[in-house]
Amino acid sequence: MKKPEEILEYLNQKFGEDQLTLERGDIGEPWILVPASMIRDLSKFLRDDSELRFDMLMCLSGLHYLKEEELGVVYHLHSTKLDHYVTLKVRVPVEEPEVPSVESIWKTADWHEREAWDMVGVVFDKHPNLKRILLPDDWIGHPLRKDYVQQEFYQGIPTGE
């Protein structure tokens, strides 16, 4: 059972010293900031390594940071065998929101990534079926962005009052 600091040290030995950083807010739990290009290899290592064994992806969420003009993806991982947790965060610019998909590693990510694409607009690379899941296919815009403006009519039906 490892704490987040120990997990970061272990990962630094394998991936090099300055790729990953441990951050924390004023309250709540700490997280590891991961560059977008590394996330797929890192996830495979996290799942398969015998000291880490993160076999369950609990949750994957998409976020929009308006001030920094970035989109973020948060991964919460848990190991059922060794009973430890870790949180990973990835941030990408709004103009090029591409993040490698982890669907081949944890199958739960399939629908979670489709939802992140639908709500926030993160494009997941090599996802087998990246289509809208909650909203209709011809909806315009990504609603959970902070600067989203609702469309006035949808197929002739007023969306407002």
Binding site: R24, G25, D26, I27, G28, E29, W31, M58, C59, S61, L63, V74, H76, T87
Partner: peptide
């Protein structure tokens, strides 16, 4: 009025693991 931070908690609902990720 919480300060900057985030948390993920999970509880056992009758259907399974219900998780909330809150960022403030």
């Amino acid at each position: 009025r919480p300060k900057n931070g985030s948390i993920y908690t999970r509880s056992e609902s009758p259907r399974g693991e219900l998780g909330y990720y809150i960022e403030s």
